[in-house]
Design a protein around this nucleic acid. Sequence first.
DNA 1: ATATGATTTTTTGTCCTACATAATATGAGA
DNA 2: TCTCATATTATGTAGGACAAAAAATCATAT
Lengths: 232, 232
Amino acid sequence: MPSTELSKDIQRVETSSMADVVETKLREYLKKKALKPGSPLPKELELAEALGVSRNVVREALSRLRMLGMIETRKKRGMILAEPDVLKAFERVLDPLILDKQTLQDLFELRLVLEMGLADILYRRMTEEDLKELESIVDKETGKVRTPFKVKNEIAFHGKLYQMTGNTTFLRFQSMLLPIFEYVVDLRKKDGILSGKVTHRDLLEILKTGTPEDFRQGMKEHLKPHFERLNR
Amino acid sequence: MPSTELSKDIQRVETSSMADVVETKLREYLKKKALKPGSPLPKELELAEALGVSRNVVREALSRLRMLGMIETRKKRGMILAEPDVLKAFERVLDPLILDKQTLQDLFELRLVLEMGLADILYRRMTEEDLKELESIVDKETGKVRTPFKVKNEIAFHGKLYQMTGNTTFLRFQSMLLPIFEYVVDLRKKDGILSGKVTHRDLLEILKTGTPEDFRQGMKEHLKPHFERLNR
DNA sequence: ATATGATTTTTTGTCCTACATAATATGAGA
DNA sequence: TCTCATATTATGTAGGACAAAAAATCATAT
């Protein structure tokens, strides 16, 4: 049996480092203690002593948690539990240049799915002001030549939709996906595949007078070129 | 003005540590070099020297990237660029006990939106086998008493739907959201708010003979109790 | 000569010590 | 009691040391 096959059959011995172990232990500790944001944490030396490892290892683990926004440190005051932030970690990895093609495609599809699913929450939460703002966005883009396609308009319009859901996690998530959106759309620009027959203005009209059902249909038509590009 | 208000108005001076700086520099380095997964990275000492910091700092930064799955290290062979993984970082933060209520609610809504948006991709990609499997899942749950509500069935059914999209990022993302789903659903169990008039079997029937539009309607009805609980 | 085993080299993992720095606590003086 | 100076304390950074593991090299035996 060639070694390449062997390496698939036999799992590599998982030798997690002390930092890995300490990281999970710290996470468990935070969970178990059920500390509130702002609560002080034991100092590095105490942790190191309690865990039986060097301060170095503790610091590596803490550094990770700090990156995830789980803890904050102030000199002297020691560390405190921070307001958790789900998306902070996401930010660091979401880079079109780093991700492989398949993942990019997956995320693009994720976005399509989100747009298709927005309708109900949108109708439930949108306000008059929202519609006015959306109108001004649409106004800005009309009159302009359709080619070259203005990515900015797309971002403004669709971004506003997310904002109208009143779901901030949502909005941030979407804005983080933007580079990917731009990336994929940019690739398709050459093919002239951009936007379906239903325009932003049409969608706005639907929001004003139509139903969630209408909106979904409209959005599907709007995104049609993208859907048609999906494989299988 | 009380100090609590002041601290909101005046931004804290951002004093990023060396580890922070090195982390971003390393990330930039990886991007600029456009290395392929498996490519070897410079050794720690070289990096430290090149960056003009101690090996300690470099290690803290590397530890972060390792946690995100961006790099792997083998003893002696040095470090190599790993296959990127968008969701690895997410896993670490997604814990109902750590997240605040609003974020939990936001994520729950995210899931509702996803389910509503699944239809088109689902119809495009589902196979005969998928439907059979879905059928067996539905078979298992019928005949059982509806209360106590079986969360397992929910997970099996909806999880299968995600899997049927053929989008692995999707599937993983959903399975990571599960604890949150369970958490929120568990909270609602007491109120008897669980599932609408459209059952899993109904949804399966729609998948077999209906249109994406039908499926969306059905799913909306199925999720109706949850939608009704949304505020505003 | 090839295969096996021993030795060396190299790089990461871990520990330790030391000191700078900043924020707080303490104390002195008016 | 208030203000200023000083001491204390915890984190941030540096640098040295060594263990361990993996690879490379060399030595030996059949």
